[in-house]
Design a protein around this nucleic acid. Structure first.
Length: 589
RNA sequence: GGGGCCGUAGCUCAAUUGGUUAGAGUACCGGACUGUCGAUCCGGGGGUUGCGGGUUCAAGUCCCGUCGGCCUCGCCA
């Protein structure tokens, strides 16, 4: 070992010991006769002092040190004494009085200092990710990620789960996201697909009797990126046999509690709350609302259908909805300009054509359009919205879908802007009773909401024939702070029910056989009742880290255009490689 | 595929309405200094204003295109 301790180890009780540290030069302060170096590794920072001393040249040697040089220092741990203690450092009571300095590797002048006062733009940080990863914040995030993975493995291992790996080179299926494809050299013109999730494999493992499976699985989806979406990401993938919905939720409740315990040292109250899909859509306009704050959506369609305000009236008469938010005490918070530009812009992104707003004053409405509502209507609206003087009322008149999406976005904006919650808090809950299918108006057919192996709520089997849109699925999402943090379902194991679902989705037997033949085949050979779930590992780490960006918790993430700026990936390849793979490029221009 | 924001010294930023030689802090280089911890003090070097074109007497600033980064709608069973 080149060192006896790390830069985070030394304390007052090490005084008088001779030790050797290794690390990077974080800061240096040259006083001529004495040089101070803050030596950094991932465990912390220790101050090293190099003093002028007739017997050695060490202080002159130290004067050559610059940012990010990698050095080895041997010396004595000494107390800093009264007045020289640095309370900002865990090691601040002591320093290392250097006797021997070895420069293990001189650094070029770095493009930025990992713990500098300002953070460089992300492009540069991604290009020099090896330096960026030296930052304390990123080291903390990756440590957190490790802790969460460890807590996960410990938890499932204790419950007799087996961790089983599934293939990365798989087969393309037309459902879901766009696949990443890998051309086969041996099979001319054929391609493997990288897994979007181990979905089909884990169901087959259930059929094979591995009744408790988990895996921290890498998944790949070739879709556009977002702040919380990368093209390759990790799932905590789980599947269990001989269980019912409550069992699954209970196991994951326990996992969440174990993660919180491991990371924050806190106990949480179980079971986690459960809401139905219908409840959250009606009250918050989203299937994953951030419930750290209230600000519910209130429907006033019935109150405004007879008003003189044409927009509201015609919307209701045309089958649409007028719904709104009551923003407490915010009547003076937003100027007309902000309401008409910023807030209207937010709802506009989700298709809302306008945003109506009123102030509550004297128990009635105040606004340029208040005149279209008589006193009785005004008072009824104020009462329904539970408005008080000084409140701001915001309304959207549109289709159900648009009112949900736009009000949910508006609600998120207001919650954040008005600081309605503690950003460090975490609030996790279940959403259950999702619809099994949704009507695809463009294609004029029913689409599976979760996926086509998702089982039907036992009370709704009869509805399959009469009103499929009302059939509830045995699926569940776990939501944390407005993010979808996990999603899963109890699967169908009965071929007759599976056939019913295929019929509804208009998938004929031949087609089904071609697409999922291997799974259908497996299900015919003794499939136990089973169900599962997948948690978005990156998102959980992000939530625990208090970050809003998934790149902050991935060691080597990709940019929005899915490139790796450090590697320069993706890249051109040698023409011989293409030839081997039977690929001919046909690029425009 | 659509919308929005951004790109000036190694880095973070500034530069009036389009107007003189594009500035500051930090980093870097040289010098001074024996107790700092954002060390301090003195001096110095450092610019294709992302790239290409256009308008203009004059462009970092305005216009068009393009490249790159970020946010977002669609997309993500």
């Amino acid at each position: 070992m080149l060192r006896t301790h790390t830069c985070g180890d030394l304390r007052a009780d090490h005084v008088d010991q001779t030790v050797t540290l290794c690390g990077w030069v974080d800061k240096y302060r040259d006083h001529g006769g004495v040089v101070f170096v803050d030596l950094r590794d991932r465990y912390g920072i220790t101050q090293v002092s190099f003093k002028l001393d007739n017997a050695s040249e060490i202080q002159h040697q130290a004067q050559e040190l610059r940012h990010e040089d990698v050095i080895q220092v041997t010396g004595d741990v000494v107390s800093r004494g009264e007045g020289n203690i640095n309370p900002k450092l865990a090691t601040g009571e002591i320093e290392l009085r250097a006797r021997k300095l070895t420069i293990l590797n001189k650094s070029r002048t770095p493009p930025f200092e990992p713990n500098g006062e300002s953070l460089p733009n992300e492009e540069l940080r991604l290009q020099y990710r090896f330096i960026d990863l030296r930052r304390r914040a990123l080291q903390r995030n990756l440590t957190l990620r490790h802790q969460i993975c460890k807590a996960t493995r410990d938890y499932f291992n204790n419950l007799k789960f087996l961790e089983i790996e599934t293939p990365i080179l798989g087969r393309s299926t037309p459902e879901g996201a766009r696949d990443y494809l890998v051309p086969s050299r041996v099979h001319e013109g054929a391609f493997y697909a990288l897994p979007q999730s181990p979905q089909l494999f884990k169901q087959i493992l259930m059929v094979s009797g591995y009744d408790r499976y988990y895996q921290i699985a890498r998944c790949f989806r070739d879709e556009d990126l977002r702040a919380d979406r990368q093209p390759e990401f990790s799932q905590i993938d789980v599947e269990m046999a001989f269980i019912e919905l409550d069992d699954m939720l209970g196991v994951i409740d326990g996992l969440v509690a174990a993660m919180v315990k491991e990371v924050r040292g806190e106990e949480i109250t179980l079971p986690l709350p459960r809401y139905t899909y219908t409840e959250v859509m009606e009250k918050y306009g989203s299937d994953k609302p951030d419930l750290r704050f209230g600000l519910p959506i209130v429907e006033v369609s019935d109150l405004v259908s007879e008003s003189d305000f044409g927009v509201f009236k015609s919307t209701v008469q045309g089958g649409g909805h007028v719904r709104g938010l009551c923003v407490k005490g915010a009547a003076e918070k937003y100027s007309r300009r902000i309401l008409d530009n910023d807030l209207k812009g937010i709802v506009g992104e989700y298709g809302a054509k306008g945003l109506a707003y009123f102030k509550v004053a004297g128990g009635k409405l105040e606004s340029s359009i208040a005149k279209f509502f008589n006193d009785k209507q005004q008072m009824a609206i104020v009462e329904r919205m539970q408005g008080e003087d000084g409140d701001l009322l915001l309304f959207i008149a549109d289709s159900w879908k648009v009112s949900c999406a736009s009000l949910a976005a508006l609600r998120n904006y207001l919650g954040r802007d008005l600081k309605l919650y503690d950003p460090k808090s975490m609030l996790t809950y279940w959403v259950v009773d999702f619809p099994l299918v949704s009507w695809n108006a463009d294609e004029k057919r029913w689409d599976a909401e979760h996926h086509m192996f998702c089982s039907i709520h036992p009370d709704d089997v009869e509805l399959m024939k009469t009103d499929p849109g009302k059939v509830r699925a045995q699926s569940y999402d776990l939501v944390c702070n407005g993010y979808e943090a996990a999603s899963g379902s109890i699967r169908i194991h009965d071929p007759a029910i599976q056939q019913q679902v295929f019929d509804l989705l208009n998938i004929n037997a031949e087609e089904a056989e071609q697409r999922f033949g291997f799974l259908l085949q497996a299900l015919r050979y003794g499939a136990p009742p089973h169900g599962g779930i997948a948690l978005g590992l990156d998102r959980w780490v992000m939530l625990f880290a208090g970050s809003e960006n998934i790149r902050d918790v991935i060691a080597f993430p990709k940019t929005q255009r899915a490139s790796d700026l450090m590697l320069g990936a993706p890249s051109d390849v040698d023409s011989q490689q293409l030839k081997d793979l039977h690929i001919k490029l046909d690029l425009q221009n």
